[in-house]
Design a protein around this nucleic acid. Structure first.
Length: 468
RNA sequence: GGCGUCAUAGCCAAGUGGUAAGGCACGGGUCUGCAACACCCUUAUCACCAGUUCAAAUCUGGUUGACGCCUCCA
């Protein structure tokens, strides 16, 4: 399996730190509002990475934090006149709901920044002791000059960065030794939540939390660290500085970053008003459609969002589901018997397509190609399967499609729901009407059911129904 | 200004040296009372220019265009 490492700018063979295990950390959202579809991209993409790793037999320890102390949370709390904790807890709950609807598995651990303050103070103290950090009147900064490798992830020229931020020094904004130094601990302002520390009553900087949580839940050296591409600098760069200076060993072996989700080819932003929450999309679509949409492009490419593309994704996903649905229906009608030579050959083709799926995923998680392989199996099923086939043949095709879809987190089988008895009765009535060639009545009944969200389909094997 | 990414059919999107996967949409047709599902047929020489090569979407140089990071941000 190869994956693209931002650090080395190339695809590398994946070799875990510990054989058979994957330790992976994904930067999670700051919880001050409902998550937007841009937040959803890394969740879906890296959940898919996780599922694929598990499919390959790895035991995956997946850690993703919630940043629950931050300026924006405090601002939102002030706005509503409630505590910061109330805001963060509310939106953590909402976020988890969205994740479930997108079929994103809960992380092995979802640590909260506010629950890890002790660890942060410990790490900051350690960095000060080792000379990598310094305290100026209660604010603690990281001394970037001391870490020779600073900039190795984002491939920045530090002199350019320093000259670029010269204005900061001129305006005297800072008591920093160097403009690139960043905050590890800052004193509280009036009314803000705070914790006691050796330096001041205050709160941690943003970057330190991830270093601490990764270390606590995964260890000093992890396999994969992932997040949105905008986190490369400064967030991940700073994490590397903190962790490697503190632990004295490489932090993460592989750095994975997803591309942005754009709207009308522009980055989403509140000022442009081109902003959608996952919740809003969920009102119009099954969020499986959003997931399918996200997987239609490579995770590192920018992806443009539009209503038209959501429609296309909806139809595409429907095609896969119809395929599974049709197979299911045929399985009920089919007989158990020996596989014919032709059936065996077709199953072999399906197996080859499943291998193609794996090859695509092995190549830096090429989900677009992987989805294409699923479509090809669906096509194979649609063109070859009928109720006259051996039951085993149909079952295997269905299983193959469902299994590969599941690796991508796509649910192909709707749960069987019990029909209300009166709806069942209506379907029977319609069947009677059809038998009597009273099509007018039959159509009336079908229309009525449609109004209730029940779609009927007449097939050779009988009437199928599904919810709209 | 510095660093970086990208440009494939109406739309989305694979393909990184051997002659263009897949999906959506459109049109035509088959099946079924109709509809839906499904099936069949139809749709591109890969931004432009120059070069390397027997052979390039795929390598090199240039041009144009779009975008991202450098500041909180998935």
């Amino acid at each position: 399996m190869k994956l693209y490492n931002t650090m080395t700018k190339q695809k590398e063979e994946f070799v875990p730190v510990e054989p058979g295990k994957v330790k992976m950390y994904v930067c999670g959202p700051t919880v001050y509002n409902l998550i937007h579809i841009g937040n959803a991209r890394p969740m879906i993409v890296f959940d898919t990475v996780r599922r694929y790793m598990e499919h390959k037999g790895y035991e995956v320890n997946y850690v993703s934090n919630f940043t629950d102390v931050d300026d924006k949370i405090i601002a939102k709390a002030a706005e509503e006149g409630v505590s910061a904790q109330e805001i963060s807890q509310r939106y953590i709950a909402e976020c988890k709901k969205d994740m479930a609807d997108m079929n994103v598995k809960p992380a092995t651990t979802h640590p909260l920044a506010t629950q890890e303050i002790d660890g942060m103070i410990e790490m900051i103290s350690d960095l000060i002791q080792k000379g990598y950090a310094y305290d100026v009147k209660g604010t603690v900064y990281f001394r970037t000059r001391k870490f020779a490798q600073y900039g190795k992830l984002s491939h920045k020229n530090l002199d350019d960065l320093r000259s670029g931020s010269r204005s900061l020094l001129v305006t005297g904004e800072d008591q920093k030794e160097d403009p690139l130094d960043f905050v590890l601990w800052k004193p509280k302002k009036e009314g803000e939540p705070y914790w006691k520390s050796p330096w001041s009553d205050g709160r941690p900087g943003w970057h330190i939390e991830c270093s601490v949580m990764a270390k606590k839940y995964l260890g000093e050296e992890i396999d994969i660290h992932a997040g949105g591409e905008d986190l490369i600098f400064p967030h991940h760069e700073n994490e590397i500085a903190q962790s490697e200076c503190c632990n004295g060993k490489p932090f993460a072996k592989y750095w994975l970053h997803n591309g942005f989700l754009n709207i009308d080819n522009k980055k989403m932003s509140k000022s442009l008003g081109n902003f959608f929450t996952v919740r809003e999309i969920g009102e119009k679509y099954d969020l499986q459609v959003l997931r399918f949409f996200m997987l239609s492009a490579h995770y590192r490419s920018p992806l443009n969002f539009s209503a038209e593309l959501m429609e296309a994704s909806k139809n595409g996903l429907e095609r896969i589901r119809n395929g599974v649905d049709n197979l299911k229906h045929m399985i009920n009608a089919a007989e158990e018997k020996e596989l014919t030579q032709e059936e065996k050959e077709n199953l072999k083709k399906a197996q080859e397509l499943a291998e193609k799926f794996d090859e695509a995923m092995d190549d830096d998680f090429n989900t677009a190609d992987a989805v294409a392989a699923i479509f090809e199996i669906v096509k194979l099923a649609n063109t070859t399967a009928n109720a006259g086939n051996a039951k085993e043949y149909l079952r295997q095709l269905k299983e193959k499609i469902a299994q590969l879809s599941d690796i991508l987190g796509l649910i192909t089988e709707k749960e069987e729901e019990m029909l209300d008895s009166d709806i069942e009765k209506m379907i029977e009535e319609r069947q009677a009407a059809r038998k009597a060639k009273d099509f007018k009545k039959a159509d009336e009944i079908r229309s009525k059911l449609l109004e209730k969200g029940i779609i009927l389909e007449d097939t050779r094997e009988g009437v199928k129904w599904k919810r709209a």
